[in-house]
Amino acid sequence: MTYPHQRLVARAHDRLGLHRRDQAWLDRRWDDPSSRVLVVSGTRVRPVEGTLPWVPADQAPDGVRVLLGERDGTTSWAVITGPEAAASQEGEWYPLRGLLPALVGQPDDAPLVFHALGLAEWHWATRFCPRCGHALVAVSAGHELNCPKDDGGCGRTQFPRTDPAVIMLVSHGEPGSPEERCLLGRSPQWPDARYSTLAGFCEPGESLEDTVRREVAEESGVRVGEVTYFGNQPWPLPQSLMLGFLARAESTDVVVQEDELVDARWFTREQLATEAGSGAIVLPGGVSISRSLIEHWYGDTLPGSW
């Protein structure tokens, strides 16, 4: 079975990492008429009629050139400009979350866009050296930021950051039985009726399985025992890697941590289908790993989504 979140990561591109410091090679690829560029203003992209606006390299504006990689003989790039570019041009510019509808229609481009916007977010947040405060300079085709020693910096290099986050479907009861239930929660920031799997970030020195147990206990008061890996999804909002797990509950009493959740509820499969079908609850979008976890446990597709 192909799960919903896998639609956006099905075709990885060759990132061509060995060529990032070869300026002559980079120049040749940039000048190749078949190369294409995604323009990113700050951390936003402007879809054109619902599609991603790749442009020829000779039509790209000035900015930081980022080599994304190659697929099917085509080299793809991103050019990261300042946020003022979006303000000076007509049309709506969207962060990654707003681009998801376009990516559903262009799933082959999704890994490239995740790559581009993940680096754009990092460039935006990492403009000065955390060691000495000097301005950083992009090198290695946009994949490293150097603190230039010949300009008074400390010479250290910064690399892109990815924060591991766990997301888990917690269940209780005899697997597959009508009485088996799953635990879903609702964040304080979400509109009424939106429910999803629980999630949280890994802390230093902590295993992923222990992160699952800790986060579920902190957010809902439920104690978790067995934890099984399910899959993962890049989620550069702004810089996460979502690691999905199936978790078995050893307790069922729910006591929500109100700064994390406003509600958490157990659902049987029948309750989940009925309430999702009626609109009483709204489940995550079809491209998220959260949706995949829920439908994997349910055993089929479910109606409705954010």
Rank of each mutant, 00 (worst) to 15 (best):
D109P: 03
A78Y: 06
L145Q: 12
F128T: 08
A120D: 05
L99I: 04
G152N: 02
E90L: 09
A85L: 15
P101N: 00
P61L: 12
A135Y: 07
L67R: 04
P101C: 01
T126A: 07
G82F: 05
L67W: 03
C129A: 02
P83V: 08
A141C: 01
H134P: 03
L68Q: 03
G142Q: 13
V104F: 00
A85D: 14
G69P: 04
L99S: 03
S88C: 09
K149S: 14
L100K: 03
G82I: 12
A135R: 15
A60M: 12
G91N: 08
A60T: 11
H143A: 15
E90V: 07
A116Q: 05
G69T: 02
V113E: 13
H134L: 02
R65A: 08
A135M: 10
W93T: 11
W77D: 00
E121W: 12
H143D: 15
V66H: 08
H143K: 15
H143Q: 15
A102I: 09
G69H: 02
R97A: 14
H123R: 05
E121F: 10
G118Q: 07
G82V: 09
H143F: 15
R127L: 09
Y94K: 13
V113D: 11
C132N: 06
L103E: 09
A60P: 14
A141E: 02
F128E: 04
